[in-house]
Amino acid sequence: MNKENIFKFLMLLPYIWLFTGLLVLRNSDKTMIVMMIIAIAATLFHRGLVPIKENLKNDKTLWLLLVITGYALFSYFYHGGSSREIRALIGASLFLICFPRELLTQRVLLGLTLLASSLCLAYACYYSLYININRAEWPINAIPFATMCAVFGILAIAQLSRTVSLNVKLQAALALIFSLTAIIFTDTRGIWLGFTIAAIIILLLKIKNKGINWKYTTIGLAALLSIGFIVKPQIEQRIVQTQAEINAITSGNLDTSIGFRFQMWKLAPDMLKDNYILGLGDKHALRFDKLYNQGLVSERLFNFKPAHYHNQYLDNFIKTGGIGLLLFLALLIVPITQVKYVSTDRKYKIIGTVGLFAIAALTDVPFNHGQTLSTYLLLICGLINYSNPKKGL
Rank of each mutant, 00 (worst) to 15 (best):
Thr344Asn: 10
Ala182Trp: 02
Phe262Pro: 07
Gly259Ile: 07
Ile359His: 04
Leu193Ile: 15
Ile219Met: 14
Trp63Lys: 14
Thr31Trp: 13
Thr372Phe: 04
Thr196Glu: 07
Ala268Glu: 09
Leu180Ser: 12
Ile68Tyr: 06
Ile40Lys: 02
Thr218Met: 13
Glu236His: 12
Lys30Leu: 11
Ser226Glu: 05
Leu22Phe: 05
Phe178Ser: 04
Ala41Tyr: 11
Thr363Arg: 01
Lys60Trp: 10
Lys206Tyr: 07
Leu10Lys: 04
Phe195Trp: 15
His369Thr: 09
Leu166His: 01
Asn141Ala: 14
Leu225Ala: 15
Pro100Thr: 02
Phe77Leu: 10
Gln106Lys: 12
Phe95Pro: 00
Met264Phe: 08
Ser75Thr: 11
Leu104Tyr: 09
Phe185Val: 04
Gly382Phe: 01
Ala330Gln: 02
Ile191Thr: 12
His369Trp: 12
Glu236Arg: 13
Lys283Ser: 13
Ala268Thr: 15
Gln171His: 09
Gln237Leu: 13
Leu121Val: 09
Val342Gln: 01
Ile154Cys: 01
Leu115Asp: 01
Asn293Ile: 03
Asn385Ser: 01
Asn141Gln: 15
Lys266Tyr: 09
His46Thr: 05
Ile97Thr: 11
Gly153Ile: 06
Ala116Asn: 03
Gly81Val: 03
Glu85Ala: 12
Asn2Leu: 08
Asp289Ala: 11
Phe178Ala: 07
Lys210Asn: 14
Ala175Arg: 08
Val339Lys: 05
Ala268Pro: 02
Ala175Gly: 06
Leu314Phe: 12
Lys391Pro: 00
Leu109Ser: 10
Thr256Ser: 09
Leu160Ala: 04
Leu109Cys: 07
Asn368Lys: 08
Arg135Tyr: 05
Gln312Glu: 14
Gly211Gln: 13
Cys120Gly: 09
Lys206Arg: 15
Ala330Gly: 10
Ile336Trp: 08
Tyr292Gly: 00
Leu12Gln: 03
Gly352Cys: 06
Ile202Gln: 04
Gly295Ile: 05
Arg261His: 07
Ala116Tyr: 03
Pro100Lys: 03
Ala142Ser: 15
Gln263Trp: 08
Leu314Ile: 15
Lys60Thr: 10
Thr344Val: 14
Ile16Trp: 04
Ile249Thr: 05
Ser251Tyr: 10
Pro366Cys: 02
Leu326Phe: 13
Leu64Trp: 06
Leu314Trp: 07
Leu301Tyr: 14
Ile359Ser: 04
Met1Ser: 13
Ala88Asn: 08
Leu160Asn: 10
His369Gln: 10
Ser179Gln: 02
Leu18Ser: 03
Lys319Cys: 09
Lys169His: 10
Pro306Phe: 06
Asp282Gly: 10
Ala116Asp: 05
Tyr376Val: 06
Arg107Asn: 09
